[in-house]
Computed example of a mutant assay.
Amino acid sequence: MEQKNFQLHDIVEMKKPHPCGVNRWKVIRIGMDIRIKCEGCQHSVMLPRKDFVKKMKKVLETATEE
């Protein structure tokens, strides 16, 4: 299985879109659980890391270091 590299504030695409129709999510918390926020309706969801890695399709935009 390929290693999925993601970090805080990345924009990721999940395998299934959110019910609002948008499939862009921002990673807003990383730990044992990953919290992601829908870029369309701003709804946030917390997933266990294992589930997040399984459901994530790819990283669309990486966060830039400031």
Score class of each variant (00 low, 15 high):
53 V>P: 01
22 V>S: 09
7 Q>D: 15
13 E>A: 13
45 V>I: 13
55 K>E: 12
64 T>W: 00
17 P>S: 13
48 P>N: 10
34 I>H: 07
46 M>H: 00
52 F>I: 00
16 K>A: 07
35 R>V: 11
32 M>E: 13
42 Q>I: 01
2 E>A: 06
20 C>M: 14
46 M>D: 03
60 L>G: 02
51 D>H: 04
41 C>N: 09
6 F>S: 07
55 K>A: 05
56 M>Y: 03
42 Q>A: 11
28 I>V: 15
32 M>Y: 06
19 P>N: 06
15 K>G: 02
32 M>P: 05
2 E>C: 01
44 S>T: 13
14 M>F: 04
37 K>R: 15
13 E>R: 13
11 I>T: 15
57 K>M: 02
51 D>C: 01
20 C>N: 15
53 V>A: 04
6 F>Q: 09
63 A>G: 04
40 G>C: 04
3 Q>T: 13
40 G>P: 04
10 D>S: 11
20 C>S: 14
7 Q>E: 14
38 C>A: 13
49 R>N: 03
38 C>G: 10
6 F>I: 13
58 K>Y: 06
3 Q>H: 14
44 S>Y: 12
18 H>M: 14
60 L>S: 02
32 M>N: 12
50 K>Y: 11
27 V>K: 05
17 P>L: 03
4 K>I: 14
40 G>D: 03
53 V>G: 02
55 K>R: 14
8 L>I: 11
3 Q>G: 10
10 D>V: 12
33 D>S: 04
2 E>F: 07
50 K>T: 05
30 I>L: 15
40 G>K: 03
61 E>M: 00
29 R>H: 13
13 E>L: 03
29 R>F: 12
62 T>C: 00
22 V>P: 00
33 D>Q: 05
36 I>K: 14
10 D>R: 10
45 V>T: 12
31 G>M: 05
54 K>E: 14
29 R>K: 14
49 R>P: 00
55 K>P: 00
21 G>E: 05
34 I>N: 08
46 M>L: 06
43 H>S: 12
58 K>S: 06
